[in-house]
Design a protein around this nucleic acid. Structure first.
Length: 455
DNA sequence: GTAGAAATAT
DNA sequence: CATATTTCTA
């Protein structure tokens, strides 16, 4: 707002005047975006005649936050071309090309996060990050999913914004963070791979629900709990009990909870959406390990994606194996069949290793060069090691390769999608400077979206 | 505690 | 209805 000229400090003006001028330059109640009032202390509000906002319902917050956001954005763009929220899109468009993304760089980084991982996510990593989608929803309340995501470019800046999170893995490195929020269950939203890293700032943005994290009720969800605590004795029923409890902090309570519950632990993890990028990581990891060693935990580690849980991986692995099995069953067109079923899988070439002879032939060797790991080799010192669990963080992943195509690509007529880079895919992990060591990966690029059957 | 499979939930 | 998550069993 250009209206905000601040008093210049060096001026020789009387204090009163200065004070007045300063006061004048303050935004008026009307000028403030609705939600921002909530962040002002009562005292401050009264001094400047800002009417405190009445408590808001989730819906209000949602609406207002969006309005505020849009407003801010438009103001910004009016001034410069800088788009602070490159990824934000209205959720409306569930269309294929839409980007229902609503992210915010939240995180639920609790102190004791069992696995030392936290959702933090920054999407714009250096070279355009890939991201995964995560979707959080609460079971009992049909809340819209809350998104995580959107982050701050890491490149130089770091993004360990507040809100809990982010670093945990403190090493300077970057962590692959591929999360994205999606309202589209099927989850394939292409999103432009924003290459530039997001300029710092903007710790997080609101999503439809406001700052998701804290407005989440403390349901008994078992998440986070999983490992550590299924509260209330019978873990099993935890879920059942869910509805009768809470009434805690928010909702009825005060309008503003400035300092939220560090209690992120009551949060349910977002539902993970396996985007092609994420899946690719997965596949790479599996390939890298060799099917033999590819067990959830290890894969998870290799993938090094924040917030990814072993369960996520296990689940996906389960499915992936099924897929492989199918492929194996019906060669030739089997692929087609399988592909038909699993678009995701079909879109990612099988790692040379697993190939079709999944189960059965052993191959402990490993393979594909795909893994970024700077130094090649295990990114982290020995997996057993466990040290400062901080695997080498992968830097960015490539931008969304599937740019633009969403579901469309799965329909193509399964023909010989010849060469064209049989296994291009993987990483051009460009390390952006930073941690010494450069991409050792061959200049592969371009990924083939089709099942690179290549035997 | 981990993996894998099956059951549920979304 | 496909997927992801949670539960259950080995």
């Amino acid at each position: 707002m250009h209206a905000c000229e601040r008093p210049r400090i060096g001026m020789t003006m009387k204090d009163d005047d200065r004070g007045l001028q300063w006061k004048h330059s303050l935004p008026t109640s009307e000028e403030l975006t609705p939600l921002s009032k909530s962040f002002l202390s009562p005292a401050f509000q009264s001094v400047f005649n800002i009417k405190p906002e009445p408590p808001k319902a989730a819906g209000d917050v949602s609406r207002e936050s969006r309005a505020s956001f849009l407003e801010l954005r438009s103001q910004r763009s009016a001034v410069s071309s800088f788009d602070p929220f490159p990824l934000f899109k209205e959720r409306k468009d569930t269309g294929s090309y839409g980007h229902p993304v609503e992210g915010r760089g939240d995180a639920e980084g609790r102190e004791g996060d069992t696995r030392g991982r936290a959702f933090s996510d920054f999407v714009g990593e250096g070279r355009g990050g890939a991201r995964a989608e995560v979707r959080r929803e609460s079971r009992e309340a049909e809340e819209p999913e809350v998104g995580l995501g959107l982050g701050i470019g890491s490149g130089g800046g770091g993004g360990s914004e507040r809100g809990g999170v982010a670093e945990k893995q403190g090493h300077g490195g970057q962590v692959a963070s591929l999360f994205r929020v999606g309202s589209d269950p099927t989850g394939y939203n292409a999103s432009e791979g924003r290459s530039e890293q997001s300029p710092g700032g903007l710790p997080f943005m609101m999503n439809g629900l406001g700052y998701g994290s804290f407005e989440r009720r403390a349901e008994s969800s078992s998440y986070s709990g999983r490992g550590d605590e299924k509260v209330g004795g019978s873990a099993k029923n935890a879920r059942k009990l869910a509805d009768s409890d809470f009434e805690d902090t928010d909702s009825a309570g005060g309008p503003v909870n400035s300092n939220e519950e560090p209690n992120a632990r009551t949060l349910k993890r977002p539902r993970l959406v396996w985007t092609p990028q994420l899946h690719k990581r997965f596949v790479d990891a599996v390939g890298h390990l060799g099917i033999k060693n590819a067990v959830p935990k290890t894969i998870m580690q290799l993938m090094n994606v924040e917030g990814l849980t072993r369960e996520n991986v296990a689940s996906h692995l389960q499915k992936y194996r099924l897929y492989l099995k199918r492929l194996q069953g019906l060669p030739a067109d089997g692929a087609a069949a399988a592909a038909a079923g699993d678009q995701l899988f079909a879109s990612t070439p099988l790692p040379p290793n697993l190939g079709l002879h999944y189960m059965g032939s052993q191959r402990d060797d490993v393979g594909p060069q795909s893994f970024p790991s700077g130094g090649v080799g295990m990114p982290f010192g020995g997996m057993g090691g466990r040290g400062p669990l901080g695997p080498a963080h992968f830097s960015a992943y490539e931008p969304i390769p599937y740019g633009g195509m969403n579901r469309a690509f799965m329909q193509r007529p399964m023909k010989d999608r010849t060469e064209e880079s049989s296994e291009s895919e993987s990483q051009n992990h460009q390390q952006q400077s930073g941690s010494g060591n450069q991409a050792s990966s061959p200049p592969k690029r371009l990924l083939s979206l089709f099942p690179t059957s290549s035997e």
